[in-house]
Write a protein that binds this DNA or RNA. Structure first.
Lengths: 111, 111
DNA sequence: AGCAAATGCAACCCACAGGTTGCAGTCACT
DNA sequence: AGTGACTGCAACCTGTGGGTTGCATTTGCT
């Protein structure tokens, strides 16, 4: 599936305008032009954002009549969430272990 | 909770160097200088990244002796993961409802 | 058929993020 | 006490991401 690297997906989510777009698309399919009518940016700008989002799998496009409608892919966001959660847990685990070592009075250096 | 807005946190995670840093810090506390010795960027650059990460709560700093050590905060990543998951689910739910409407014979499409 | 509307592509602009170097100050070791 | 190491701050450089305008083309609707 060539899942994009974490930083890339996060970068795609690291823009306010893109979140605006995603929010709208989360409510239902919309075309770039339709989004441009709602949001305070040009259609072309929207188009670029949609391309970015599509490359990381956060939206999918579908030709509907003469327009191309996009829709937010919740599953991708879910997949990202799981990845982040996994990493976060590993951080906590290691940190906990380190703290235990530090606090264990067993064979510690007594200064 | 002063939780930074989603786009901001994601933006912080949207940089490869920052992930490098986080990965190292996930393994244990390190100072900016120590990170600079390991990573191919200057200490000052690392410092800026650490500041960004600290502002969104992804790392915490602690004065240890004459150096400042940083550590990755897994809980923050977990919190972000939960937020994203929640949003992703809502997208899927709405999309499912829309598809159901579309496929249902146009009989009970009352508002 | 004809017009309005949607898309695709390209050139262009500008702010800023990521990076660098340099310097000054401070604090821990020997 | 002296020295090396770590930090903080500032100035500076550059690529590019987000945005715009303009134009050509396609395509649905009446």
């Amino acid at each position: 599936m060539t899942a994009p690297a974490l930083p890339v997906v996060c970068a795609a989510l690291g823009d306010a305008t893109r979140w605006e777009i995603l929010t709208r698309l989360g409510e239902g399919p919309m075309s770039a032009s339709a989004l441009a009518r709602v949001l305070p940016v040009s259609r072309q700008a929207i188009g670029k954002h949609l391309e970015v989002l599509r490359e990381v799998g956060l939206v999918e496009s579908e030709q509907r009549g003469r327009e191309v409608v996009y829709v937010a892919v919740g599953a991708r966001l879910g997949a990202l969430a799981r990845e982040l959660d996994r990493i976060g847990r590993s951080w906590q685990t290691r940190l906990l272990r380190i703290k235990e070592l530090a606090e264990s009075p067993a064979s510690d250096t007594a200064d």
